[in-house]
Design a protein around this nucleic acid. Sequence first.
DNA 1: GTAATTTGACCAGA
DNA 2: TCTGGTCAAATTAC
Length: 258
Amino acid sequence: MSHGVDKAVEALLRGQESAYRLKTVLEHASSVPTEPLFDTVLDSFSFALSLFASSNPQPHRESSQNKATPVVARKSPKKNSHGEEGLEQYIQDSPTPFCNDGFSWRKYGQKKIKTSSHQRCYYRCAYAKDRNCNATKRVQQIQNSPSVYRTTYVGKHICEVNAFLQPNEDIINGSKMIRFDKIDQVMPDSVMPQLVPVEQQEAIIIEGTDQIMNLECGSNEFLVDDEQLWGYQFPRCSPGNFMFLDDLSEFDYNPFHV
DNA sequence: GTAATTTGACCAGA
DNA sequence: TCTGGTCAAATTAC
């Protein structure tokens, strides 16, 4: 727990730092893009809250915001259309319906839910057919003013694993993997644009009783600090370069310091 | 022209 | 029968 608290504090400090930086940018009408700073602030709080939530699991509260609440191996009362049951689910609340989780999703349905005045949107992995990935998610607004959107992730992404896993790589025994090939490689500007929009953030996936953090980059962009982006020439996360984390301490994980 | 989204219909479980 | 989830044709966007 103490380690989780440290990480949470670290994330909050990071958010505070970004907020100060954002304030400076706004005060000086700088041309520096503010969106990455906004995202970093929001992601910092999301990450910190998710740490608290995962370290102290409690029933989900309707009023929670920006909170990642894992639902550990919850058995779905209803099989899906493929006859699968017991798919892992993970709930996250956010003030925006567009939670950047690092994956590509394709909307396949939208439905009015009886118990809610808002419609529920259904998404599946964009590579569901190509790579037989069964990950889906549902997004629904659950609260007005302030708006709260609940995203429910169902199933696990196996698309990148199927497509790019090398034969000798260990995915079965704990999926402990970080691959940033040619990490010291100098990337051309055409490949690594400056201050790219943040499209990635942590995706928290619960496996059985072991809570893991699974950070993946799915569409070639990073959640990255702007200073670090300048300070380090870092490869983008391409299909050959991906990571799995199931032991934060092992990598001194910080989603805001890629 | 192709890909993504929308939306009504259909299906299965409760 | 009701409801939530998915399918698939139609529509829209690029």
